[in-house]
Write a protein that binds this DNA or RNA. Structure first.
Lengths: 130, 130
DNA sequence: CTTGCCCTTCTAGTCACTGGAAGCTTATAT
DNA sequence: ATATAAGCTTCCAGTGACTAGAAGGGCAAG
């Protein structure tokens, strides 16, 4: 199947599929006689795996590791868990940062009248943060 | 004062200060006789303003707008509030996405034994998400 | 005088794509 | 049969917000 069909079935844009090939994430597929990439169901399956992994915020490198483990029938689930756990910790950290930031910003927005006058606690807060 | 001192007082790396100048965020400062950038307290004050704005996650373009409003004594606080409110909405959205993602990942991590066996619900979940 | 740090500019790399150009091949419509 | 459109190929460049590094000049202390 051509890259367009693989794109439809995997949910990844053709550009992204080629990019993943360049990055070494997905092995180069077979080529048809006309030079077009020729994907099979296994290729598509892996592309979907990568899409879901990326969707959960794993980096492309992490996806590469996960995909290797997925294909390694002798893997240890502990190796997978380490990667996932590390990522989970990073997400938790990111959420905490965003919530703190949100709290500060929310406070600033709430104290600003938002009218035609120039007095603005938001700008004051940015200039002289507490 | 040289860029190094402005860096210390503003909390921004010299490279970043030059980058902001390139981006048109901060007007080019005076130059000393030796060609070095020569910052004054007002410059540093603006740099600090930008640092705090960026710290709250405003984009460089948004920082540019906020800084213009900060310097415009005839501004309307409503203009500021619109920018901040929009950013707040984006942060809320980002937090929601991350929390959903976290929930899925947390579930996967929790159901994985993480031992020497190859069976791994994380990989299964990535291959066949529900 | 030389060592070492600070300053200058410019280029290029990061991450994960995405857009576009130029040139094939294939499918569809007339 | 032909015109056109869509799909494929490669390669180059741009995104955001820096950051690293190279090559060169300035300046104070030992």
């Amino acid at each position: 199947m051509n890259i367009g069909e693989a794109s439809k079935q995997s949910g990844l844009p053709p550009k992204t599929i080629r990019y993943y090939e360049d990055r070494g994430l997905i092995a180069p597929p077979a080529r048809a006689e006309n030079g077009y990439r020729d994907y099979n169901d296994t290729d598509v399956h892996k592309l979907r795996f990568v899409r879901h992994s990326r969707g959960l915020g794993f980096s492309v490198d992490e996806c590469s590791q996960l995909l290797s483990l997925y294909e390694d029938k002798g893997r240890q689930s502990a190796d997978v868990k380490v990667i996932a756990q590390k990522h989970l910790t990073e997400i938790d950290e990111k959420i905490r940062e965003l919530q703190e930031l949100r709290s500060t910003l929310h406070h600033l927005v709430n104290t600003c009248q938002g009218d035609g006058r120039p007095d603005c606690p938001i700008l004051e807060g940015l200039a002289n943060p507490s």
